[in-house]
């Protein structure tokens, strides 16, 4: 038995309803409802039935303006994802936007510098940018040296980016989508010092105020997750965002019902179910 299996096998716990891991039954039901809602919306979109549209997101519209400005000024675009991790959904949400920016840069013949503090993301980003240049019909313009792994040490990465911002003076900086930590404010202010137009977006709640106050355009919270649907204008992907919104109504209902039960009743069956 491999290491790990033997350790866990010692720990016998009871199944909920004879099927689910203890503590996960409520979560599974919620996940299943969410998945069904999203699937229904995708099916509707595939069948050509009408689904709601995503509202205008000025931050995403501003990306092409930012790249255009860099092109006019003959200066590069800098793209950072903060401190990304392949296990973080914010990072996954950033990939389509990076591809979009790379394609725009390739079309406009503008240099794109992507700095990365994570080795896995470095490999993925290089591939995304290479493919984007290929799709734009300019594979020769792709320079692998402009996708730079600096270090996975937070403030050493910050120092590296500060040097790049000061030396290369990018005309546009895209900070999308995270997770971002203390480095965000430093990048935003250094970008402003370099004279860059800045488009930022993150779901890292602690950094949101800095993005809102410091960037020219900011996407907050779940807006970043709608980016790929918004940019692709693909109804099937938009369906997933609409499904998510319907699920939100269910959550609001659960919050209201849960609050009423917790306030007026002695026991809370909803809470018991969700943690069962």
């Amino acid at each position: 038995m491999p290491f790990g299996l033997s350790l866990l096998a010692q720990e016998e716990s009871k199944a909920v309803w004879g099927i689910f891991t203890a503590g996960q039954a409520g979560a599974f039901v919620a996940v299943a409802i969410f998945a069904i809602l999203v699937y229904v919306m995708i099916t509707r979109a595939r069948a050509g039935q009408s689904i709601r549209e995503i509202h205008k997101i000025p931050g995403l519209d501003a990306i092409s303006e930012a790249v255009g400005r860099a092109t006019e000024m003959g200066r590069p675009v800098h793209y950072t994802m903060g401190l990304p991790s392949i296990t973080d959904p914010q990072t996954i949400a950033a990939f389509p936007v990076l591809g979009y920016v790379a394609k725009l840069c390739a079309q406009y013949e503008t240099r794109l510098i992507n700095t990365v503090p994570d080795v896995v993301i470095y490999a993925i980003n290089e591939e995304i940018i290479r493919q984007a240049y290929l799709e734009a019909g300019r594979p020769d313009a792709f320079n692998p040296d402009d996708v730079r792994f600096i270090t996975d040490w937070q403030f050493a990465y910050v120092a590296g980016v500060l040097e790049i911002l000061a030396a290369e003076k990018p005309a546009a900086q895209i900070l999308f989508a995270g997770p971002f930590y203390a480095e965000a404010m430093i990048f935003i202010e250094a970008g402003a010092l370099a004279g860059a137009i800045q488009v930022g977006g993150t779901a890292s709640t602690a950094q949101l105020p800095f993005f809102v106050a410091g960037c020219d355009y900011a996407l907050i919270g779940e807006e970043i997750y709608a980016a790929s649907a918004y940019l692709s204008k693909e109804p099937i992907i938009t369906g997933t965002v609409v499904g998510e919104d319907y699920f939100k109504f269910l959550i609001f209902a659960a919050i209201i019902v849960g609050t009423l039960i917790a306030t007026f009743a002695t026991s809370n069956p909803l809470a018991t179910f969700m943690t069962s």
């Binding site: 969410f34 999203v38 914010q90 996954i92 779901a203 919270g221 997750y225 997933t240």
Partner: peptide, 14 residues
């Protein structure tokens, strides 16, 4: 914001 962000993250996963 956190509820929205978690749901958005989950929609990406889906």
């Amino acid at each position: 914001i956190q509820i929205g962000a978690y749901l958005g993250g989950f929609a990406v996963a889906l």
